[in-house]
Amino acid sequence: MKIKPKHIVIWFVVLLLQILVFNPLNVSGYINPYVYPLLIILLPFDMAGWLLLILAACLGLSIDVFTGTLGMHLFALVFMAGLRPSIAKILSLSKQEPGAYINIKQHGLIVSATFIGVLLFIHHIMYFLLETFASSGLSYGLLRTFASLFFSLFISMILLLVINPGRNER
């Protein structure tokens, strides 16, 4: 896959959305949607593993810098990126044409949502574990994880539709 200007624009738009819109958003104290992992999820399946991890590290660190939580997003996002190849293999998404990435048209809504949902769950559970770190109890951490996960997944699917509306334009 060639890097097009469109990809760079998507990268920055999602990053800015996360920092400026979703980070300050705090519905009823539980819900903090994190959609930026989508940028790592959307990378091509055949991308080199080391590049995937480095990109995840850079992205996680830049989110950390903006939220003042140095290390937490970095850890959670790299954790997610590290498990991405295995999840793709389990959902038999790894054997694809070169440059293919997850999209609704090719893989269907259910598979796309499962893939994104599982990876977002991994990211969220790691992040909220680190954030609350057993201080406010496991149940509170899990409640925050699932409440936020629901919103993150919802917004991610909408973003996915916007980014890749199903027309075969690649």
Binding site: G71, F75, V78, P85
Partner: peptide, 28 residues
């Protein structure tokens, strides 16, 4: 290389985390 890099970055992340977030450090 993938696993090694993965573990390496996570260790760096945790050490940054403990260095900059006193709360997590104390909790740990």
């Amino acid at each position: 290389h993938f696993t090694i890099l993965f573990i390496l970055i996570e260790i760096v992340a945790i050490s940054i985390l403990f260095q900059h977030n006193k709360y997590q450090k104390v909790k740990f």
